[in-house]
Design a protein around this nucleic acid. Sequence first.
DNA 1: TTAACGACGACTTATTTACTCGGAGTTATA
DNA 2: TATAACTCCGAGTAAATAAGTCGTCGTTAA
Lengths: 175, 175
Amino acid sequence: MSLYGSSVEYGLHCLLYLADQPEDSPPSSRDLAEFQGISPSFVAKLFTRLEKAGLVASEKGIGGGFRLGRATDSISVLDVTDALEENKALFDCKEIRGKCILYRDKRPERHNQSVCSIHAVMLEAEQRMRDSLAETSLADLAGEVRNKLPAKINTDRAQWFQDRQDRRRKRKTRQ
Amino acid sequence: MSLYGSSVEYGLHCLLYLADQPEDSPPSSRDLAEFQGISPSFVAKLFTRLEKAGLVASEKGIGGGFRLGRATDSISVLDVTDALEENKALFDCKEIRGKCILYRDKRPERHNQSVCSIHAVMLEAEQRMRDSLAETSLADLAGEVRNKLPAKINTDRAQWFQDRQDRRRKRKTRQ
DNA sequence: TTAACGACGACTTATTTACTCGGAGTTATA
DNA sequence: TATAACTCCGAGTAAATAAGTCGTCGTTAA
């Protein structure tokens, strides 16, 4: 496996689709899942976490779904990974120095004085990773994808989501 | 949990003790485990991985144990994490674009043309993390720890390992 | 010979991930 | 207003992984 789970992959792809979505027709989590060919119930679960983090806002009811909670340029990739992987650190220092046989009886005070050197190295590496992830926003990613793919794909996709929305709302808004 | 498992923590601590060890008396994996109050069988397992990566060299037999496979300044923290967490990437891109409902039938060729944009962001972040981990060597860490702790602790530790070694070898070298 | 060591692999257990299911709640339509 | 259609939501399950164990083997020194 990898350090980040598949939640991060699913979530980022979903949010990228939301970034290109018109304001008035929020796709449901089911729409997003079926469009990508992944599990609808799992995507639904991811979105509850994304909502708690404020990255998306939900709209209930028959025509409801999700829209982004903030502007695309104010949501970073780091925001998404933090929301989906909870607050999972790179390294969980268990302070095993405290178990050392020499200090089994008289607990040493100096362990609390400073951060474990190993831990410090890990914290630094983690911070660099986080800085990097924070540099890219959903707006950056969405723009990149739009430029990379031929226009027809984007219009096809927009059409598909619109059709789904229309079907749910019995074509009230369109036609 | 954290992204890196406890193998990394155990392994790094063990290697740090090896860094301060005199050449002629290699501690056994059991010595290292009992000194730190952690599971001997698990530490033994870790050392087979460290040996395969060339970070330690083993010596069999009754007085045997482990010594570092290279100089302390040529073993980085990254070397250790790579050895213990296999080749676990930060992000495992499953290319779910290929499952998209629009291309279910006619597989698009352009997916292979370029790296997924999301994947690219992750690769960059991972590289920065790896660069950071590669900057610190066992020599750096060992020096830091030596300076941080009072001298007595270091001599006590050296004495403890020496006693263990002597007990195994029935006090051939000492006394 | 014996006791201690590492090497190796199968095995067990605990935790986490990935995913499902059955509500509760909301909205559009009749 | 009743109801059907659709949503979010969170408890619960199954599969995968991590963490740790155990036993057998070949090696080495006392």
